[in-house]
Design a binder for these strands. Structure first.
Lengths: 107, 107
DNA sequence: CACGTAGTACGATAAAAGTCGTACATAGGG
DNA sequence: CCCTATGTACGACTTTTATCGTACTACGTG
């Protein structure tokens, strides 16, 4: 089955550890990635799904930061732009990193 | 053998993942931690040891950020303030994170 | 076609972070 | 005592990041 082309993103070997750390150092983006990992492994989600109480322009900004750091992959489905975590790529490059995100205890 | 008291630092269970990510998202601080891990596991080092071409005030700032995030522990030895990575604490809280720092390939 | 929706680029603003010079405190040695 | 060295707090400046409103584009539906 053909998927739409992903939006521009770094190649696997271009993903920089400090860029990934920077992307995940914001609490909102950390929560986005955690939610993607824990609650939606099988399929993508558009921006609206996350239920964050933020203007769309703010969420657009954060999704772009995650994509440009190489943490997420985004594809356009008609009106919707869906994201999921580049789990295989990140596990190849930084094994265990995503486990830290899912197991970190929140207040 | 008595060591000097560490400078103020967060308790193990107060260390926040996003604070650690933020501390390690700066290339200079990432390099400081990597160097501490790879080249000096057995003993502490003062600021001068790292050989960074930066003013002392800049290095003081970065060492403080690392300590306040809970990544490093600093102790005062006479004139010198020596740092090492809180390896046991970080491995307990975020297993595998420090491995990512040491194995990350640099340009 | 019109309309509603998703999502964006742009720009403005505010906040945060990084850089570094300066003057200072402290420690240690002679 | 003086001198040197380590390292800092403070403040100023620059850069980066976060927030969000606005106007817009593109898509899907009727």
């Amino acid at each position: 089955m053909d998927l739409p082309e992903p939006l521009p993103e770094p190649a696997v070997d271009e993903i920089r550890l400090e860029h990934v750390f920077a992307a995940l150092s914001d609490p909102l983006r950390l929560e986005i990635v955690r939610k993607l990992l824990l609650e939606s492994e099988a399929f993508d989600h558009s921006c609206g799904w996350f239920g964050f109480d933020r203007p769309k322009s703010t969420l657009t900004h954060h999704f772009k930061v995650l994509r440009e750091a190489g943490v997420t992959r985004q594809r356009q489905y008609g009106l919707e732009r869906r994201s999921h975590v580049r789990t295989d790529d990140l596990n190849a490059r930084f094994p265990g990193l995503l486990d830290l995100v899912t197991t970190d205890k929140r207040r």
